[in-house]
Design a protein around this nucleic acid. Structure first.
Lengths: 187, 187
DNA sequence: CGGCATCTGTACCGATCGGTACAAACGCCT
DNA sequence: AGGCGTTTGTACCGATCGGTACAGATGCCG
């Protein structure tokens, strides 16, 4: 199994981009094959479970990325305010300053919801809880922290929807700025 | 043309529900026919343009509903605070307290975006501008009003995404409560 | 009742869907 | 070189996709 694992790993970001652009139902095997440069044979060799396994792998990779780059720092970094600032800049980078939609949110709103409900809920719950933990460590009470965290996650998602709907990526940057102000009112 | 217009009008809310649940690509003609109780013949007689015209009609109906129930009062009602309060309760009702996703947002994130870009952008821009007008009339400066309006619309959209993703409709109610507090800080 | 336009169920179209089968090509070992 | 497991392109599968054609049902007029 030489190239196998490598091909799978290399394919996942490309698959993610296609699912992001077209949704679960809209991403056809023909398109997924063309974009990854893999024929059906290779695709099904790397993902024996077919399209569902591809989407599953993509969601898992996204969750892992957020876990190491955002959730873990929020939970563990010494300075919670620095962790929150980092969360905002990582988020801005990840979503290409509003030019890229949130795949998890898109799947949550449309067809794939039932199929991937657990993973979708986990993604948002983990984000919310990690942010709440950071807010608690920065001095907020448990309820205020949970409320602020939920507001921030919702605002970020809404900012992505709005940026995409208005075709105005800058709306996402403004949203992140407002979130920063709500979460770190100080300086 | 006796039943024709009536059938079309009666079908639109049902079509809307199907598009909402499955997205544009996920809503098949077979399903649309079954749910409306109309055969392909009737469906194509009422909507000669096929699925695209059905989606177009649904989006137009949604826009009209928001225009009369929400945007117009925001723009014209004597008491802007009352109009904002009304906006929030109408929004809560329309989205079934978080149990119903935003079709326009869902289409914006997935496949139908390119096809319906203008209508989607118009929907959100009209909402944002009407809300900004109400905020201006209630004493905010032009920039603050525009900023608050954008934040509120994004928050509402994000609240819908979150409620659906977490399968926790109550998250939408909490979002609306926060929006109310941001928009009408007084009592 | 006859005539006519509006509606609608059904059969069918080519294209594409996700998925499978399988033989040839390939890489790696001794 | 020879052998063997992995990888991959291609042909093919039944199902379903959006859309069309059209004959018959239906309702409304004189």
């Amino acid at each position: 199994m030489g190239q196998g694992e490598g091909a799978r790993a290399a394919a996942i970001p490309v698959l993610a981009e296609v699912f992001r652009e077209r949704g679960y139902e809209g991403a056809s095997l023909a398109l997924l094959g063309a974009r990854t440069g893999l024929g059906k044979g290779s695709l099904y060799h790397a993902f024996p479970g077919g399209k569902a396994e591809m989407a599953e792998a993509v969601l898992a990779a996204i969750e892992a990325w957020f876990e190491t780059r955002i959730y873990a720092p929020l939970r563990e970094e010494a300075d919670p305010r620095a962790a929150i600032t980092r969360m905002l800049s990582e988020t801005d980078t990840y979503f290409l300053s509003g030019g890229r939609a949130c795949l998890v949110g898109a799947v949550a709103l449309t067809g794939g919801r039932d199929r991937f409900a657990a993973r979708i809920a986990g993604y948002f719950a983990a984000w919310r809880d990690a942010l709440a933990a950071a807010l608690r460590r920065s001095g907020h009470g448990p309820e205020a922290a949970a409320d602020l965290a939920e507001e921030a996650i919702a605002a970020i998602q809404g900012g992505l929807v709005l940026a995409r709907a208005l075709d105005e990526p800058a709306a996402f940057g403004r949203t992140l700025e407002r979130v920063r102000f709500r979460l770190i009112p100080s300086p």
